[in-house]
Design a protein around this nucleic acid. Structure first.
Lengths: 331, 331
DNA sequence: TTGTAGGCGTTATCAG
DNA sequence: CTGATAACGCCTACAA
């Protein structure tokens, strides 16, 4: 069933059918009704590929994220997709994993699907060595690239980031001002965000003359066990009375560590999370965490994207959103 | 840059270019190399829409789920997307929410994108009154519909479900055999799964002469607070020493309830979750929960889909996967 | 207000 | 092994 069949059944030309389909041009009410009826009756839907071919777009954007199982990413994807759809875009999802070559492949794959734009969600797409980010710049030659929670400079690349540095500085500063002597930072993977957070913590420690060396960074393997053993390992190298974590999941795991070691939280060990996820509301004690405004960031990213594609408003290549500390009972 | 440009540059016809592009037909090594070089050089990618138009498919499947923020759904989406991509399919994601009309709209939207198939993830797509599921049957007239965790009978509809009834019966039976006197079931939304679970619990209660009425079902509003007040409300109507929850998030919230009421878990109140999510490994005490095999179910769903579309193997319209009880410390 | 015809970029079927 | 050429289904000037 195609536009010709509809036209024939209605006794008109395909142009007229197309016009009622798109609400473009003038069509007499009588024929419009007739055509609409026939469309209904035959349950006809225009072929999306043909339309895409003619118009050069299917209004689809590619969303890349490492893993939707991650609490933060899954929420971001939810907000992005919902808002994109409201703006008339569909979302092609791709869970790329954390491996560099997989990420590159996934990006290439997306581009080959002729998406209108690509959104890179999460801070895992940025390598610390800037030249390693050329794969993003290369992609940006084909379609605009939007990064949520990552920043790369380049033409046709638009970044929406959270001010991880400032809020981490602020949080560490607050902790050190209220009794903490030594901070340990627990992370899972090195990423753009972790690097910014570490910078903030380091500066706060410097301000308070608190030690912060590479030994004050614990790299955790997956799972609760991974965090516990990383913290145990760290405790053999340095003393710490505070653990700042890259996200709430690590913090919740750190609570388990405290429990196993018989350390009371917060009197003997203070713990902070990040992301203000539902986890922070479930643990005992409730987590002190950072609200990095996933929803706002997602919506902002889509706004930038929409205006960028519509070329109806000038858009900034860099948008920074500030995060806020959420006080719980773990500090 | 299209296939004509490549053909011209290589001094051949577009047919030949198409052949090397698709590895179809014989092409002399010399011209193949030459064409490949030119393709490389110009960074040419065939237009996906044109290809889709010609072949009648872009190898894309629509994944519908209520909300990727849900722990279970987000993990399902991850496994589905990953496996689909390995099988050569892209995933168009749509978070439909829980509202019936939104779900219908979303389904229609997906179909209008000419997807090869649609996957409905989660038990929220099934209404208890079967005629209300006709919107799914209607969709199945256009493309095969796959349901993960929901069952509807109909042509071109393929369901992969978890045996919620049996495992719930088994769990309730175990609880009642080991000290529980009265079970309360806590749910968030009524869904296909909850109905199956309730049936299992009810039968187990009957077996043990334990009461189980409508008052033994607590409908919880969103958030930890919603669960707590629902349980408080229920406790004013019936006594219970055990709370079986629809998922781990509710169970974790129920732990908070116990804590607030000063009830020791499990000696005074036993709590069970469902889904075997990371939450069950984070709470204190660890949750007794049910491993309903998300990954296996997701992979099975994709397998069924792939064979169904390839028509290379006969596929069953109903696949049931059994779940397993995971013992924690909350019972 | 309506119709005609060309173009979008592939794939696939024939001839050669 | 290679080249014309007809689909694929829609949109949209341009004509009428």
């Amino acid at each position: 069933m195609n536009i010709y069949d509809i036209a024939k059944a209605a006794g008109v030309s395909i142009a007229t059918v197309s016009r009622v389909l798109n609400g473009s041009g003038k069509v007499s009410p009588a024929t419009r009704e007739k055509i609409l009826a026939i469309i209904q009756e035959n349950n006809y839907t225009p072929n999306a590929f043909a339309r895409g071919l003619g118009m050069g777009s299917m209004r689809t954007v590619g969303i890349l994220c490492a893993n939707t199982s991650d609490l933060y990413l899954s929420e971001a994807v939810f907000h992005l997709e919902s808002k994109l759809r409201k703006s008339g875009f569909n979302s092609l999802l791709c869970c790329t994993g954390y491996d560099k070559s997989e990420k590159e492949n996934a990006l290439r794959l997306m581009l080959s699907k002729s998406v209108d734009a690509v959104i890179l969600v999460g801070s895992n797409y940025i390598e610390s060595e800037d030249s390693a980010n050329d794969y993003i710049r290369r992609a940006a030659r084909q379609v605009p690239v939007f990064m949520m929670n990552g920043a790369v400079k380049g033409e046709n690349i638009y970044c929406v980031t959270c001010d991880d540095y400032s809020v981490s500085f602020e949080l560490a500063d607050m902790l050190l001002s209220t009794g903490s002597k030594t901070i340990l930072f627990a992370q899972r993977n090195n990423s753009y965000s972790t690097r910014r957070m570490i910078a903030g913590i380091k500066d706060a420690c410097a301000k308070h003359n608190a030690p912060f060396t590479d030994d004050h960074i614990a790299n955790c393997e997956a799972g609760v066990g991974g965090v516990i053993s990383a913290l145990r390992g760290a405790s053999r190298k340095v003393r710490f009375d505070t653990v700042m974590c890259f996200n709430d999941l690590l913090a919740a795991s750190a609570l388990k560590y405290a429990q196993q070691e018989g350390l009371d939280v917060p009197s003997q060990l203070r713990i902070t999370g990040y992301d203000y996820s539902m986890l922070s509301l479930i643990t005992t004690p409730l987590l002190t965490t950072v609200d990095n405004k996933v929803e706002l960031m997602s919506h902002t990213t889509v706004d930038v994207l929409v205006h960028c594609l519509a070329k109806d408003l000038p858009v900034s290549q860099q948008t920074v959103i500030s995060a806020a500390i959420v006080k719980g009972q773990s500090t």
